Simulated scan of single mutants.
Amino acid sequence: MPNIKSSTDLRNNYNEISSFCHETGEPIFITKNGRGDLAVMSIDVFNKFMGRYELYHLLEQSESDFENSRTLTFDDSMKSLREELKNGTI
């Protein structure tokens, strides 16, 4: 069940809300004038979400490349990697 607090609670109980987010890894949803406004979470949880988002984005790109025949053979991939290593670009 989501944890919902008002913007007044955020202002008056910041330390409590921060502790909750860090200890549980769960977000707290903040309302303003009775309507959803923000989601507050620890920076660690945020970074984890961003990592997943970036991974999903790369997977979507890979699927698109595969569907549109923008792929290399294993040998061509290895040749390209060796070139990049030789040139110091990776």
Rank of each mutant, 00 (worst) to 15 (best):
I4T: 06
S6H: 06
S7W: 11
S7A: 04
T8S: 08
T8W: 07
T8L: 10
L10N: 05
L10I: 08
N12E: 13
N13Q: 06
N13R: 06
Y14K: 10
E16I: 02
E16F: 01
I17M: 10
S18Y: 07
S19P: 01
C21F: 03
H22M: 02
G25I: 10
P27K: 05
I28G: 05
I30S: 05
I30Y: 12
T31P: 06
T31S: 12
G34K: 13
G34W: 11
R35N: 11
G36M: 14
D37W: 15
L38M: 13
S42V: 01
F46M: 13
N47W: 01
K48C: 00
F49L: 10
E54W: 07
E54H: 05
L55S: 04
Y56F: 10
Y56I: 02
H57M: 07
L58G: 06
L58D: 15
E60T: 07
E60H: 08
E60I: 02
Q61T: 03
E63Q: 11
D65S: 05
F66R: 09
F66Q: 05
N68R: 09
S69R: 15
T71V: 11
L72S: 09
T73I: 04
F74D: 10
F74Q: 10
D76H: 04
D76K: 14
S77P: 00
S80T: 12
E83G: 00
E83P: 01
E84M: 03
K86D: 10
K86N: 08
K86A: 01
N87W: 09
N87G: 03
G88I: 04
T89R: 13
